[in-house]
């Protein structure tokens, strides 16, 4: 059974149709890359998965559980959506770290707030806190940020900030980690360190969806690639299928523009 099934997602902003009947599925431990030009709907799709946008139609199923069904969405409270969100982690293009917290605090904050909802929180406050801190330190070390734990976001480079953001998303153990153009706001020399981290996550079989403009990276890291244009999935397949045996004219045009640029 796939970990994620997206069925017939439609999304319009006013009269503009941004996503048109999007369906795909993702297996556990696999990395999916979504490529396509700006305005093709990639980011909107990711935002729908994270409940930052509400699709007008379609279903989202994770581990066999229907998280979203446009047909009876009105019955779902903010509280329900909040819990369902936790199946997904999100790494934003602009990092969106909380500026008043240190790197470590950024990673710990959501876990600490969630722990307060545990019935045993009051008795085991100390142990829970230590466990969360331990986990956060481990994640930041994994991101090679050992020496940066008590730095505030403005004291970190873009690449370091984005790695903190990745650790922050991982802290909640999401089923699927989403990246929305994680390196688009970075200088070329900082892009590499973030891609390296994402690559190592792929090597550990983290289930991921990566929206990216880094074609070489997508080809290298992803198990499966979707090419989107004009709100539809034009073509999908393994990197080899998509890059070396391109079927669709629009995909060909898009890829050739990229190979010219690089």
């Amino acid at each position: 059974m796939p970990i994620l099934e997206v069925q017939n997602i439609n999304k319009s902003f006013g009269s503009t149709k941004v996503l048109n009947d999007i369906s795909f599925s993702l297996e556990r431990g696999k990395a999916l890359a979504i490529i396509g030009s700006s305005g093709s709907g990639k980011t909107t799709l990711l935002r729908c998965l994270n409940f930052l946008e509400t699709p007008n139609a379609g279903r989202i199923i994770v581990n066999g559980e229907t998280l979203f069904d446009a047909a009876d969405h009105s019955s779902k409270s903010d509280e329900e959506i909040r819990k369902r969100r936790l199946h997904f982690g999100m790494v934003f293009q602009s990092f969106n770290l909380f500026p008043q917290y240190t790197a470590l605090e950024n990673v710990m904050l959501a876990s600490l707030l969630l722990a307060k909802e545990r019935p045993d929180y009051k008795q085991n406050k100390r142990a829970i806190h230590e466990e969360i801190e331990h986990h956060a330190i481990e994640l930041l070390s994994q991101m090679s940020l050992e020496g940066r734990m008590s730095h505030y976001p403005h004291q970190l480079s873009g690449g370091q900030q984005q790695r903190v953001a990745i650790a922050r998303a991982l802290a909640l153990h999401p089923d699927i980690l989403c990246f929305d153009e994680p390196t688009s706001a970075l200088d070329p020399e900082l892009t590499g360190e973030v891609l390296k981290v994402i690559r190592s996550l792929a090597d550990q079989h983290t289930t991921m969806i990566i929206v990216t403009h880094e074609m070489a990276f997508a080809r290298d890291v992803a198990d499966h690639i979707l090419f989107m244009d004009g709100g539809v999935i034009v073509e999908q397949g393994t990197p080899t299928e998509l890059f070396e045996n391109t079927q669709n004219e629009r995909t060909k045009a898009f890829l050739s523009r990229f190979s010219q640029n690089n």
């Binding site: 930052l52 997904f88 969106n96 707030l113 922050r168």
Partner: peptide
């Protein structure tokens, strides 16, 4: 920035947690 609210949302925070823990001090 909107991103601050969105980051809080995707981390499963409630509206009041986002207000008090994320945006208020800013």
């Amino acid at each position: 920035p909107r991103g601050q609210y969105e980051a809080g949302q995707v981390l499963g925070m409630t509206k009041s947690q986002i207000f008090f823990k994320v945006t208020l001090l800013q």
